[in-house]
Design a binder for these strands. Structure first.
Lengths: 339, 339
DNA sequence: GGTTAGCACTCTCGATGTTAGAGTGCTAAC
DNA sequence: GTTAGCACTCTAACATCGAGAGTGCTAACC
């Protein structure tokens, strides 16, 4: 892609201006607003070339140009300068995580979504640390009456899953205790994702006379795995409505109903092929879902220790302030890693 | 309000037709579509009267009439006929609750919101059984290491609240156990809303050397109270977008951002002065929040035993299918009560 | 007196026409 | 290779117009 340095400059100017103004940018605008020292006519020639190469397009014959998705991609990969956040913004981030330091993880996630959406003015998506990756700590059964009991599953990261289960009246409390302590012995210290169906059927064999009762227990375990993976927290879903590209109610509808479908969202955030600094940018049609083909998604993953534990992303129009968004994500991930 | 029976008939026709068609209804339409046996001219006269009395209004001089909020109120209170649901709809409701019978309460709530919004095509709001009203079952502390522990609060309805707390290293495990069992003894069987600040300070006095540590425990208790009361589950938030009255993006924005604010929503559903069958209808400006002054809210409460435990509501345009919505709510509440 | 037919009037909505402005592409000069 | 000039194109905004729907009023009718 050997773009001449002048073409790069012009492309950069177009993208920058369009991101800021949300309006097709013409040759005159560039020559006035950016110190390229070129006349509109020259710029026009280069813009015509850039259009032919697929980086720009004209909404109609006599309008300015707007970047294509290819244009944004080139901008993100090659032209974009890294942004600096204002001190006040850095402080804001810092405060949130200092103030909320000792809260449980769901709280942290919620605060993160809010923070992220309010800083970026786009929609934020956060997937928390996965139960999957944390180690099994304890399983406990707490009887209510002689039919129902509360089943608790505790992970060493402080996660708790709970479920009301039914158990056979024939089961004596001594027997129950033996089963529970047996399960605890077998599961001790395992990370949850080791709890495969193989292990489960092994356990089931060992405890075969209580199958029905245990079934519910295992169901909970399996469910927590599946469910946990999919739970996406959203923030600032309305922010995206103030973007001029969403003047159309149909698009809004499509997007909002996507927001109601956790499974799809989880998919959207999944498999980020790490780019620079572990941040991935997906522009328009690079996203698989049709509803967001006019949107861009900036995704970061954060780690505790070595494992990737969470994903955090920002969804905005393709005309997104990429560099700023990336800077904000980096800051936030930094703070999250410390917890 | 002595409306002549003919005027009632006409008012009813206007409301019914407008609810179905979403278009101002004229005198000709009424005389054709409804068998009142009157000429348009007569109807016009009565409509002019109804307008003067404040039940109808004209969007502009030469359009048909639409009901005012006063008109809807009169319709709901006096004219509306109770609707019957289709068998298939009743079945749908039945199936959901049979299939999900044994699930935990959060699941039930989620399924209810979905069911309700899909049946009505409006937005559904559900507040679950309040932790407040359930009885304290057990408090448990599970140490992770010598600084942090997991605090579990279990209610007899199967609710679990959990929090990671920090505790002083100086605290021996024997002492910890004594404290926990002391708290359990004191709290046994109390409903959570009895756990007032008076009781807390009493407990605090008794255990004054461990104040700092316990502080976090009590904070959790108090938080669960407050938080729990506010948690509103939403369903079908996008449904409302397909209503013609929300063609305006600004209204949509206002409404959707309201949906993000749980506290406001909880307030909206609060203090329903029970009407017929425990169902309350709030039309337009009868709602306190500005964002929903062009919406109507139909609220039902459901009970387990004697206490009111939950609230369930439907938010739609003032031009809502009141009778149908009420019928659906009644059905669902019936099923909920059985659980 | 209540009801109806007739008619002139009003207002909206969509289609059509017009204009100003922005931006282009091309050509010719620098 | 760059620039100035100019004719051309397209959109967005505004005004104009006619059709259609529905009204209010008046006068006739039962």
């Amino acid at each position: 892609m050997g773009l001449s340095s002048r073409k790069k400059e012009i492309l950069q100017a177009v993208v920058t201006d369009y991101i800021k103004m949300a309006q097709p940018v013409g040759s005159r605008t560039i020559s006035r607003r950016y110190q390229v020292g070129l006349s509109p006519a020259t710029i026009r020639n280069d813009m015509a070339d850039l259009e032919e190469m697929g980086y720009l397009l004209q909404p109609h014959t006599s309008a300015g140009r707007i970047p294509t998705q290819k244009g944004y991609r080139y901008y993100v990969d090659e032209l974009m300068e890294t942004a600096d956040l204002e001190e006040s913004e850095k402080d804001k981030i810092k405060q949130v995580y200092e103030f909320e330091k000792m809260r449980e993880s769901e709280e942290i996630i919620k605060y993160t979504t809010n923070l992220l959406s309010s800083l970026t003015n786009y929609t934020s998506l956060v997937i928390g640390p996965q139960l999957k990756k944390s180690a099994f700590k304890k399983l406990q059964i707490m009887p209510f009456d002689n039919q129902r009991a509360l089943l608790l599953l505790v992970a060493d990261t402080g996660f708790v899953k709970n479920k009301v289960i039914h158990y056979p009246q024939t089961l004596s409390s001594g027997e129950l205790n033996r089963i529970v302590s047996y399960l605890n012995r077998r599961l001790e210290g395992l990370t949850i994702d080791k709890l495969t169906s193989r292990l489960i059927s092994e356990l089931r064999r060992d405890l075969y006379h209580h199958i029905k009762f245990l079934e519910e227990t295992f169901t909970l375990l399996e469910e927590s795995l599946a469910e946990d993976e999919r739970r996406v927290f959203l923030g600032g879903t309305t922010n995206i409505l103030s973007q001029p590209e969403f003047g159309d109610l149909e698009k809004v509808r499509a997007l909002l109903s996507l927001f109601e479908q956790n499974a799809l969202l989880a998919n959207l955030l999944a498999r980020p092929v790490a780019g620079i600094d572990g941040i991935t940018v997906r522009i328009g049609r690079e996203n698989m879902l049709e509803e967001v083909q006019e949107c861009s998604l900036v995704i970061a993953t954060y780690c505790l220790g070595k494992e990737v534990v969470g994903t955090i992303g920002v969804l905005g129009p393709t005309r997104m302030e990429y560099s700023r968004t990336i800077a904000i994500l980096e800051q936030i991930v930094n703070h999250l890693q410390k917890i």
